[in-house]
């Protein structure tokens, strides 16, 4: 059983969509989801790099410790770290969103910037 390169393809498209939402969408919550998607895309890409067709997950079974039996454990470990980091970041962004909404009653970042500028003047 082998998987062809679909995972990387999907990962890149996911990254592209997420990055575009992060850049273009003016809604803060959508921006946040876009950021999370960007990260998922990258992690999918990284995890696909560790895959070797026909091999098993890196959990030692029956004491077999040969390289040829398992896939590469490093990308999985890195992704594990990354997932947690991205949840932390998105929690902070959401908290900022709540504070901003409480103050300005809108989620649109342009309107918020407008109102903040008026406040300054």
């Amino acid at each position: 059983m082998g998987l062809t390169n679909y995972a990387e393809l999907a990962a890149i498209i996911l990254f592209g969509i997420g990055f575009t939402i992060l850049l273009i969408d003016r809604n803060l919550i959508k921006k946040n989801i876009g950021f999370a998607m960007t990260d998922s895309g990258m992690y999918l890409y990284l995890a696909a790099k560790g895959y070797i067709s026909g091999r098993k997950a890196p959990i030692v079974v029956n004491g077999v410790t040969e390289m040829s039996a398992y896939i590469n454990p490093i990308p999985a470990g890195l992704v594990l770290t990354g997932i947690v980091v991205s949840v932390a970041t998105s929690a902070v962004m959401l908290a900022l969103t709540v504070r901003l909404y409480r103050k300005y009653h809108t989620l649109n970042i342009d309107e918020i910037a407008d109102k903040a500028r008026k406040e300054r003047e």
Binding site: L22, F35, V92, L96, R102, I109, A116
Partner: peptide, 17 residues
């Protein structure tokens, strides 16, 4: 509140990019 949070949000968006 207010401007400090707005600038924090901008900082956060730029930094996540």
């Amino acid at each position: 509140p207010g401007r400090a949070i707005v600038s924090a949000m901008r900082y956060m968006i730029m930094n996540s990019i």
